[in-house]
């Protein structure tokens, strides 16, 4: 039956549950990243990997499409130097993109990678990618930005084409101010 202490106890208990769920909402952010890594959701690949010497599977060739995309607020010019390359699974390749800051101010960009089909994402290995860091360019400056990668020979046989899209965002407001200062 009702008694004041019990009421207070259940109220406080449930208040803590609510607070914990608020925290849980934030905990979902890193959990989501883990989930993405496991499922390859929307083709995210994170972090650098050690270079692995695969036995190159010369019996088949995978076509890799390299696509440059820009976000609305990004006035730079950005393009893939090769739109398409062929490689044998396990073979390491370096490819390049070309970016040019056509504006009159120093800016910092961040490329966001995305791979489709999403299933292929977990087989793409990169040791070097311009998308790993923010890339600053001074006003009017241009440069080539590189990516070194391979596709693991474990790639399922039915995937013959892998598309890698890099979307360039204006990350100036998220940039380390020292980095921007170094441009001049």
């Amino acid at each position: 039956m009702s008694s004041k202490p019990n009421v207070a106890k259940s109220a406080i208990k449930h208040l803590f549950v609510a607070l914990a769920m608020f925290g849980f909402g934030f905990a979902l952010v890193p959990l989501y990243d883990v989930f993405c890594e496991i499922t390859g959701l929307n083709g995210k690949v994170t972090g650098t990997v050690e270079k692995v010497d695969y036995t190159v599977d010369t019996s088949r060739t995978v076509t890799v499409q390299l696509l440059a995309s820009k976000n609305a607020e990004m006035p730079w010019r950005f393009m893939a130097l090769q739109e398409q390359i062929d490689l044998h699974p396990g073979e390491w390749k370096q490819i390049g993109f070309w970016a040019s800051n056509t504006t009159a101010s120093d800016m910092v960009s961040q490329a966001v990678p995305s791979i489709t089909p999403a299933r292929a994402a977990e087989y793409v290995q990169k040791t070097e990618c311009f998308c790993f860091q923010q890339q600053p360019l001074a006003a009017g400056e241009s440069k080539q930005m590189n990516m070194v990668f391979t596709i693991s020979p474990e790639l399922p046989e039915d995937i013959q084409t892998v598309s890698m899209v890099y979307t360039l965002f204006d990350a100036t407001e998220f940039a380390d101010p020292e980095k921007v200062a170094k441009l001049n």
Binding site: V112, T116, P117, S163
Partner: peptide, 8 residues
């Protein structure tokens, strides 16, 4: 069509 993503 999602910014930063590519869907097929």
């Amino acid at each position: 069509a999602i910014p930063g993503y590519v869907n097929e």
